[in-house]
Amino acid sequence: MSASTISVTLKIWRQKNPQDKGHFETYPITVSTDASFLEMIDQLNGDLIVQGKDPVAFDHDCREGICGMCGAMVNGYAHAHEKATTLCQTHMRSFKNGEEIVIEPWRASAFPIIKDLMVDRSSFDKIIQSGGYISVSTGSAPDANATPISKIAADHAFASAACIGCGACVAACPNASAMLFVSAKISHLAHLPQGRVEGKKRAAAMIDRMDELGFGNCTNHRECEAACPKEIKLENIALMNREFLTAEFA
């Protein structure tokens, strides 16, 4: 396999700390088309360190597309332009030679910028802490299939549980709404009998916390669904709304 290279111009958001106003800086770079997007930033950072400059801070961990740590707006798309792909799984071969690539952090008041492309997503943890768990006793190590769960319910629960909490939904939403994330967590538990016990209070508590944290509101643009690297469906938001209504009136 022969590796080719492309030369691109990076326009990266640089911000020293949460208080700094921030600005864009431009860096030309020639990189292998086999490099992942994060490896490309690694290469840039290597060059910056050699030049005695501050490397670009960005979040990353598994680099396998499963942990939810990486993420940035690339040319206006959350996790770049490829469908159902995290930023770490995006490769430089999907960019054109000579292209300008604008890289920005997620922008939302509930995701304050820590430095450069790193944002504080602990607001997602706070939402989970408000009810995204099961606290009832479900017994210890039951027999497989002791609790009957239909294939349809199991598939829905699993599809929702695929959410990695990366924040792309908030980043892509024109209103910086977290409703796709919250609804995925509610939906994941709502489809399972163990989760149903606390279903009523869970929806209200998680929605209340989400509102307190300053996220926006869904206006059904469906941008979150299109940007989600795990293809979480917007129908989860409809289910969340039903759970909320059930909690209020049933």
Binding site: M73, G76, Y77, R107, A176, S177, F215, G216, E223
Partner: peptide, 15 residues
């Protein structure tokens, strides 16, 4: 209020 600072570049997929 949820996004006080807008993106320099923002593209739409479904809007």
């Amino acid at each position: 209020n949820a996004r006080p600072q807008q993106y320099a570049v923002k593209k739409s997929n479904t809007t």
